[in-house]
Amino acid sequence: MINEEEVRYIADLASLKLSKKEVEMFSKQLSDIVDYVEKLDELDTKDIVPTAYTIPVKNVFREDKVKGSLSLEKVLKNAPEKQADQFRVPKIIEED
């Protein structure tokens, strides 16, 4: 069961603003999904090594060489707000 307080905590971690209705809905739906995925407990995985990579590849590198960067025009083309060739963001107030 994922209660509404937990939903709000998760939303906070995910930087998502949720309406009260969404909080209620996600509390129910996420609980249902989590109930479903708990099916995995039926499998014995005690001595199993987790798989993060399905391909047997290791040590992929690039050389330490500088190649051209993007033109400033292209860097900033999609910027919602820019100033002095930089991306502008609203003030960072850190609330208690």
Partner: peptide, 8 residues
């Protein structure tokens, strides 16, 4: 501050 500028 009223805002901040980001340089990557």
């Amino acid at each position: 501050s009223s805002g901040s500028l980001v340089d990557y």
